[in-house]
Design a protein around this nucleic acid. Structure first.
Lengths: 354, 354
DNA sequence: CTGTTAGCGCTTTCAG
DNA sequence: CTGAAAGCGCTAACAG
């Protein structure tokens, strides 16, 4: 493998000159430039990342910490892994994937060995041990999802606005009896931010529209979810729309609906909140997609900004906090990017006339 | 940040001694050992990855190359990203995620800058440009999935055996008229390995069981798929089992089945081939899961073995090619790990008695 | 059993 | 406009 020295020799210049040609951080005569470039091409030279990092202590790598529950897998995690990687490349960064099966061990290791310049944390919980670790190390980071306690930069879908929008649109399509299937029971009990905010949104939309909105919490056990759902749909007069925030069991859920003898959307309109974009299997349903691409772009930018900001939570860079459209209450002082929901897919069908 | 020199000073030894304590590659007196360890703990010292890499030219990083089609996303890609990362950690490796939107550019860059020791390539196509690149660079690699042309180590589910097993089990449950929904048309046209092998498996099982197996190719367009499926199910006497290899549109497919007035499994048994393990929404269906964890473990091991093997495709390490259970024809000479299918989920229901 | 030292490949002062 | 040289933090000869 050719080194900068080899290139220098072949071009008849000093190694430093080659370096300056590469970085562009010094004026170089056109002749020299060309000579160096030729030598680089001929030798197939490519700078060694480790040497650069050792010298500059910058890696151009982001660590992406994915929470891991053994035996469970959330499709959204993999999706963000891919999309954040795409987004990071747009800023000249690579992504090192960290799966955290047991606390923050791997993240600490990566931070301390200098394998990355900053971290992106997925699916933040209150009192996340990983946040403590990062704070203790003064390691820059940004969060995908947020709880109001975190003093780190974050991005998120406005879940309250999303559920409110879905319910409002259902009401606008003529539905007066709506079931809202919120997050799984254990997530609500854990007071996960998106779960709580979804419930708030349902409440708000209920007040606004005057529709009869029944709130139902989901359950990770398909059998219990199925039972709850059947009960809720058996109420008379029958609900005509179902707004769903917990999508993990979606196929099973649609199955339960159809085995209750209900056709979608003729008998029951199903509206999804937080679905993955570009999923082919759900194109036929009206929905609010989780803005994965936009969140990924935002979180990559926030993490990178945090590097130059010197590890604290303050802005320091060009970007100011962005909250598109009607701002909801945002108590956090850290930079953030709260995304307003948008309906996708077909329009919500009207309720059955009978 | 503390360096090895700081530790040496504090412990009253030479830097090299600290290094030897860390690597264990030299006999160290217990006293010295303890003194060094104390200094390390007190200073919170952690070795710098870039310095190690510069010295040893080993990164302990695997590059995972994910193919990327803009506007499309395959859930399986994200899933493998996570699982390969888990597996690599088991061997002391981290994973750098590479998304390849446009050819092999990113992979080449990562390989040449020495950011990784080996690559894992997902979803290999015939004549994959990434393979050429790796070959040209002499960069070690292993493949997830295989086509018979690749001279690189690989792992895969035995798709032929998988589809054959699904059909055979359906027949054993009493089904005599079976529809096999194979991969999407364009994948078959591109002669993707798993697509072709799935068809072979269906053919084999048809011959073995004597059942009436109708083969149907899937389509990426939900509408066209729906039409084909309805036609196939409308044939009389009606088919009683549906074996599905193309799962991207599964929710939509189940929807089409139920809107055809068919209950699963009372009227129609649905059997999945290549489903993602631990997916909560499909627990109620008999299936053959894609062995993601086993494939990930295998591919990580194969990639790491290829590092010491010196970049060619030959074994050189402990592991010999493993083919569990009845070996099918495997023309490749490279190390590989072909995985035999196993049924999961509930038993296949018998056909309706009427 | 331990210390000394050269050097991995690059960037960046400092000196022309 | 360009060169010379120091040194980032670590490892592995070589020398005791």
């Amino acid at each position: 493998m050719a080194t900068i020295k080899d290139v220098a020799e072949r071009a008849g210049v000093a190694p430093s000159t080659v370096s300056y040609v590469l970085s562009g951080s010094r004026k170089i005569s056109e002749d020299t430039r060309r000579a160096v470039q030729t030598a680089i091409d001929e030798l197939g030279y490519h700078p060694r990342a480790s040497a650069r990092t050792l010298r500059s202590s910058r890696t151009n790598v982001l660590a992406l910490a994915v929470p891991r529950v053994p035996g469970e897998y959330r499709a959204i995690d993999g999706r963000f892994a891919i999309d954040v990687t795409d987004a990071a490349r747009g800023h000249g960064y690579d992504v090192l994937l960290i799966t955290e099966g047991d606390g923050a061990g791997a993240l600490r290791r990566v931070a301390r060995s200098g394998l990355a310049d900053a971290a992106v944390l997925m699916a933040v919980e209150e009192r996340d041990p990983r946040i403590e670790v990062l704070h203790g190390l003064g390691f820059p980071a940004a969060l995908l999802g947020h709880d109001d306690h975190a003093a780190l930069p974050w991005t998120d879908l406005d879940w309250e606005a999303a559920v409110a929008l879905a319910v409002r649109e259902a009401a606008a399509a003529g539905h007066r009896r709506i079931v809202f299937l919120s997050s799984a029971e254990h997530e609500i009990a854990a007071r996960r931010g998106y779960a709580v905010r979804g419930l708030d949104g349902a409440r708000r939309a209920t007040a606004e529209t005057g529709a009869d909105v029944r709130v139902l919490s989901s359950h990770r056990d398909p059998v219990r979810l199925g039972r709850r759902l059947r009960e809720a749909l058996a109420v008379r007069p029958a609900p005509t729309a179902l707004v769903v925030q917990d999508l993990i069991l979606l196929p099973h859920l649609l199955d339960a609906v159809s085995s209750a003898g209900l056709r979608v959307p003729e008998d029951l309109s199903v509206v999804l909140v937080g679905s993955l974009p570009d999923e082919l299997g759900i194109r036929h349903l009206p929905r609010i997609d989780l803005p994965v691409a936009e969140m990924s772009t935002a979180v990559a930018r926030l993490a990178i900004d945090a590097i130059s900001a010197g590890c604290d939570g303050r802005p320091a860079s060009s970007q100011k906090p962005t909250t598109a459209a009607p701002a909801s209450t945002v108590p956090s002082g850290a930079p953030h990017h709260l995304i307003q929901p948008r309906m996708a897919g077909p329009a919500i069908a009207p309720p059955p006339s009978g």
